[in-house]
């Protein structure tokens, strides 16, 4: 899932400072599942902002709504009227949701209430960790299902580096060394020979380095 984290309230207060009628717009998909920007969080954020701005003596209106998926225009069309009636849309969706609103409603002013952090999973209660870098050319079959691009601090293709100690990465004792995980899994499965082969330099053109990416599926195109 796409994981996000709400911006500090002080920062959000600055984002809404110049506006009077604000729609806090949530998203019912990824950010709902990671408890960052779904209906419930929209409610809490809107009340916090109402209180905070009231204390500051500002007469702002904060309305709330949540669509099922902010990243698809058809779901946004359902709240078109609401979007047009507000002078700021404070989106609690990921960066894709924010941009979807902007593209569908060119007049709308939109501000992000969350930081889109990474593609990951809930490892424990209240702990999410990164798993995928969306590099565009998956190599998980070579690395025992552990992604070194997303999970090695240096995205090494032929790790582990000299900073791997006691299974941890040199950058943080809380971070597992991805290459230790790869080693352990390959060893347990009797496939260590896979790690003896040199992985050649990658073609990063499938990644963000190749420029903004497009995916065309001719079978799904209408014309």
């Amino acid at each position: 899932m796409i994981v996000g984290e709400q911006k500090p309230l002080e920062e959000i207060k600055e984002l809404v400072a110049d506006y009077e009628r604000i729609l806090v717009l949530g998203c019912g998909t990824c950010v709902t599942v990671c408890f960052t920007g779904g209906e419930k969080e929209v409610g809490i954020l809107a009340s916090s902002l109402r209180m905070a701005t009231k204390i500051d003596g500002q007469g702002k209106v904060f309305d709330e709504d949540t669509v099922q998926r902010q990243c698809e225009w058809e779901f946004l069309d359902a709240v078109e009227q609401e979007i047009k009636e507000h002078d700021l849309i404070l989106s609690t969706a990921c960066g894709i949701g924010v941009q979807a609103i902007v593209e569908r409603f060119p007049q709308a002013r939109v501000a992000p209430a969350i930081n889109t952090t990474f593609l990951g999973l809930p490892e424990e209660h209240g702990l999410w960790t990164e798993r995928c870098a969306a590099c565009g050319e998956c190599m998980l079959h070579q690395t025992a299902g552990v992604c070194p691009i997303a999970r090695c601090a240096k995205s090494l293709m032929n790790g582990p580096c000299g900073g791997s100690q006691d299974g941890k990465c040199e950058i943080d004792p809380e971070v597992a060394c991805a290459w230790q995980l790869i080693y352990d899994r390959l060893k347990a499965q009797g496939r260590l020979d896979q790690m003896l082969e040199i992985t050649p330099a990658r073609d990063w053109s499938t990644s963000r380095d190749g420029g903004p990416r497009r995916l065309v599926r001719q079978d799904l195109r209408i014309d």
Partner: peptide, 24 residues
């Protein structure tokens, strides 16, 4: 060499490259 992570240095907010690793 791959190099120490930028976190340890005096520009911890820098972007790291690692287009290649040391073996490559």
């Amino acid at each position: 060499l791959t190099g120490d992570h930028q976190k340890f240095g005096n520009h911890p907010t820098a972007k790291n490259v690692h287009d290649l690793d040391s073996i490559q």
